[in-house]
């Protein structure tokens, strides 16, 4: 990954052009030919650095409910319980973390009722009663950009 790749990543994380020739547009901004811009993005995708390029929807604005959940799982049952949780397509993220509440997952569903239903089922299937959910009550920031240092295109240290 060279400096141009880092510039591309900083740029397209924030915004990928929605236009007929997005790579032409992207290339222009970075002083690259369209084919070169496309080739570089393809390589970044193939090497696994880019997971995907697409839309991140505001689930709330689409009418969906989201929440963060935590469950206290005995260490020896972590894999089994993670599998139970992962079965639900409404579960988008699921991590093991260093705390007594050790499995943390996010849910996006069409209704609050569905959240309660899923958590009830997880509790029932795992036999673990200590499942909590913490829907956000205020949002101060959502920005998933990972800023690469030394590749600032506006002179800032990013």
């Amino acid at each position: 990954m060279d400096n141009t790749d880092k510039l591309i990543l900083n740029k397209i994380q924030a915004e990928f052009p929605i236009s007929e020739r997005p790579f032409l547009e992207l290339g222009k901004e970075l002083g690259l030919e369209e084919a070169d811009a496309l080739e570089r993005v393809k390589n970044l995708k193939e090497s696994g650095i880019i997971r995907r390029i697409g839309a991140s929807f505001d689930s709330k604005k689409l009418g969906f409910k989201s929440t963060l959940c935590a469950i206290k799982v005995p260490e020896e049952r972590v894999d089994e319980v993670a599998d139970i949780i992962n079965q639900y397509p409404e579960v988008t993220h699921n991590y093991l973390r260093n705390h007594a509440y050790n499995i943390w997952f996010t849910l996006i569903t069409p209704s609050r009722e569905r959240i309660y239903q899923i958590l009830g089922e997880i509790s029932q299937k795992s036999g673990i009663l200590d499942v909590r959910e913490m829907p956000s009550t205020r949002v101060f920031k959502i920005a998933v950009n990972l800023r690469f240092k030394g590749a600032g295109n506006d002179g800032t240290d990013i």
């Binding site: 915004e15 990928f16 090497s47 650095i49 991140s56 929807f57 604005k61 998933v144």
Partner: peptide, 20 residues
Amino acid sequence: LFKEKGYIRRFGATLRHRQA
């Protein structure tokens, strides 16, 4: 239009953090 209205919060690349 979806972006303007905020239904699309962001249109762009999502990275694999560890690989990046």
